[in-house]
Design a protein around this nucleic acid. Structure first.
Lengths: 221, 221, 221, 221
DNA sequence: ATTTAATCGAGACGGTACGTCCCGTCTTGTA
DNA sequence: TACAAGACGGGACGTACCGTCTCGATTAAAT
């Protein structure tokens, strides 16, 4: 994951169990202490490992936490609920549930904050967390197209842009709701959000457009 | 701002200019060093102030940065562009421009991260940053209603929920685009985002609904 | 004591009671906290006085403590016990009793320590504490001469040297016993000490001299 | 010296040279700055050592200075001058010479002052400085007994009491002369002091006793 | 079986920043 | 003027972690 396999074959090999123990200890410490009070010395102690061992495998606190948090998001699965709207609602709810867990909340924003000044870290976050979950959007769209809920994509560039937009809107809204507004992203909220998102993506523009005839607009703002 | 006004009348009064200098020095340090390398000792030096003076007024790094960043968002203004869509685009662009500035990027996510474990800090962020900008959503809606672009609100509770949702969607998407995806929230992106948002909020559900007739949907996903 | 009388007559006169209160508060703080933890801010608070008032009258911690401790030694009185030996024992016991009090122990050595690098402070100690008690030696000798226990002094220079020597031996031995050896300078010890001192000062040298016939020496070493 | 030898075998061993460098730096700083201006940060810098290293080995300023000063007194040697009086004079002169050095003057009284409120510190002073030099008294007496200048000790308890008394008188008088009276403990003074001390210890009580016939007393008071 | 080389635990190390405490000065309003 | 109150610039404190290093002791693969 984070470390080159030893490459050269001679010498004592690394203890593979240590990686697992360290990442688990990291999440445990995140829960108990939060990002800012978490120290690598403490993580090493919890993992029953020397500090040197930890530094041999990770460059620092940020990298370690990215890996520890990334594992959490691998649990995400696209449910097959029969309709696109229900599929999206299901996945957003799962995402919200993960963000509600303290080991994710605390660490995720912190590494994002640091990534604003550290390109390598941002790349690591993208690779470990964001890109790995793009699969959900892609698979969801494909399934909806198979069902006939969505038309096929004529323009690949436009398609990629839309995938990015959906991802930013979903992840952004849930994160903001959970971490900034400090309110739960519960069933009701997710339903309302999904409705607006899907309507916005699929409604015919022109007619009941935002700039269009107000007399007919029934939407609530 | 952060400190009880002296209230009691005796003793030497606080130097009001120090507050201004400290907040400016904080932003300067955020630009040069970023959140994690910013130290209060350095900020004090930059502001030409003793470290003790700084600690007398702010409880710590997080509180200080919240106040320093909050001032940035007070620049936001709702443009009067003639249409709701254009107004929203204008304000989102302004918001994106602020988030593009390093003094905002670096500090904002860090305090949000810390706020996940510190209720007082979250409250401070809400009061200093989030709630102060809710005015934009409220005023924008009122103006659109005056123009006839939006109907009046029948249900106050539903209305508040929608304002919250809009705020989470706008702020969340822009933040995620800028800080996580690491791509610019430029004119083009803002236009696309605004279109989806407004359509989602105003389109008549039922007809070209996400669950509705796929054959007619012209939306791009 | 420590401060020039205001001299110029205009303006609000100093509160004379403050001096007393400050010195008492200093001794109180010495008892409770010892020298190293005593702070001028705390003394001011105890005395019900502002820090400014304290600094207007004393230059610093050292000067203040010298004055506070000096007052303790003014209690010393030469008892009239009928014999030189008994007079000396009495005064040495009184001296030991003062040194046993925490307000004296703690402060005295500290100012002496500082005086090794501060000539003005050493002079202040000499004037306030040491010289004021030379009277005891002088009066004791005069009384013994009146009684016929000691011969009159033929040589004034030699006389002054002897007074100094006595003072250094008495004060030094008691201080060392009390503060360094950490054992009480009690009746028994004072008796033994006085015996050696007086014998050393009055015995005819030459005969049972330390360099003399060892076979006849009955002294204990 | 001050720190448990590593005992346990694991881990990087302490750098023994650091102890030496730190104690030397401490004495250097005492000379230049005196006790009250000496800071541990400065000592660490002078020793080319991190502040943490210093704190890892000494509990604080007082303990450090005790050790730094204690080494000075290890230079003391009992000269073999042929007579008890000359031996004592020699050792007292050496002692006075050490106390005349600024690194001793400045620190010694300060730690004694602090020791009045800190039993552990007093014990450390006794063990590191006082008890280590008792050897001089013991050896001097033994040598004088071998020479026949002093009789053997019949009573061990009385003997110990006398050793203590001698130590308090010698150390006390020299310290007081040097640090309080502020006059040099030079050849002449030491000679006078030694004469009184030795006479007091060896003269036959009863005859020219302090309480005895004043007409025959030739001593000067 | 021995060598070889990397890993492991432990913990000392140089270093940076922390947040606190106290210093001695200053600036108010009141007496 | 003096005084109470308290803010101020400054300096040192002692602590906590950082990330590196030096140990002696394992531990396997390569000899």
């Amino acid at each position: 994951m984070q470390n080159r396999t030893p490459a050269g074959r001679t010498g004592r090999p690394r203890n593979a169990a240590a990686d697992t123990a360290i990442l688990a200890a990291t999440r445990e410490a995140l829960v108990e202490l939060g990002w800012s009070r978490l120290t690598l010395g403490d993580v090493a102690t919890r993992a029953g490992v020397a500090k040197t061992t930890l530094y041999r495998r990770w460059a620092g606190k940020h990298e370690l936490v990215v890996d520890a948090v990334a594992e959490l998001f691998d649990e995400l699965e696209l449910p097959d609920s029969g309709s696109l709207a229900a599929d999206i609602e299901g996945v957003v709810l799962q995402f919200a549930a993960i963000l509600a867990r303290p080991e994710a909340r605390s660490g995720l924003m912190a590494v994002v904050a640091e990534a604003t000044r550290d390109d390598a870290l941002r790349e690591r976050i993208r690779a470990s967390i964001v890109d790995r979950q793009l699969r959900l959007v892609l698979e969801g769209r494909a399934r909806a197209q198979r069902r006939g809920e969505l038309p096929p994509e004529p323009d690949p560039a436009e398609s990629a842009r839309t995938v990015d937009l959906i991802f930013d809107m979903v992840a952004g809204a849930v994160v903001h709701r959970t971490l900034v507004s400090g309110k739960p992203a519960d069933q009701e909220w997710v339903h309302g959000f999904t409705r607006v998102l899907l309507l916005g993506l699929t409604a015919r523009p022109g007619e009941p457009d935002g700039a269009g005839g107000p007399d007919k607009a029934a939407g609530r703002v």
